[in-house]
């Protein structure tokens, strides 16, 4: 990885668009997405990697944007909930199965679930749980999220 010092201008590939940002090397990707690009779908639930509300996809795999430095994200394809477009199977399923209440954890869950459905469409329930345990929902009972995810996986 390149060595960065002081304020630096970087280019990030976010939702299939190249965007420039001026960052400090210590800025986390989450803050840059939210404050410089206005992509506030990823949420700062704990900024400690524990809750998953900030989950985005980096090269198709879930990552916690609060644990990724913005400069580390250079050269990778970043996808946020805004980049899903609104009508992916998992978004439709979340509406269909009422897989949210307050909605604050939803973007993060959607990104994990979307990646799971894309990467492991044949995942079983055990594997699904392992993927989703990175995230916390305080409002639902998880039963609703489970049903939504199952509906987009092939073999459950």
């Amino acid at each position: 990885m390149k060595y960065y010092e002081g304020d630096c201008v970087i280019e990030l590939d976010v939702n299939n668009e190249i965007r420039k940002a001026t960052v400090r090397p210590s800025d986390v990707l989450l803050d840059v997405l939210r404050e410089q690009f206005g992509l506030t779908g990823a949420k700062p639930g704990c900024k400690n990697g524990d809750c998953g509300t900030c989950t985005i996809l980096m090269d198709g795999l879930p990552a916690k944007a609060c644990l990724v430095l913005a400069v580390e994200a250079v050269g990778h394809k970043i996808l946020t909930v805004e980049g899903l477009g609104g009508h992916t199977p998992i978004q439709e399923a979340f509406v269909q199965y009422n897989a949210f209440q307050c909605g604050y954890c939803t973007s993060g869950f959607l990104m994990v679930c979307h990646a799971l459905a894309e990467r492991k469409p044949n995942a079983d329930e055990y594997e699904m749980e392992k993927w989703l345990q990175s995230n916390i929902c305080r409002c639902t009972s998880y039963q609703e999220i489970r049903e939504a995810v199952k509906s987009v996986l092939k073999h459950i």
Binding site: T40, A42, E82, G103, T106
Partner: peptide, 11 residues
């Protein structure tokens, strides 16, 4: 619902 699954719901 759709605001909450699209990242459009603003807190």
């Amino acid at each position: 619902a759709w605001d909450k699954v699209s990242g459009n719901a603003k807190y």
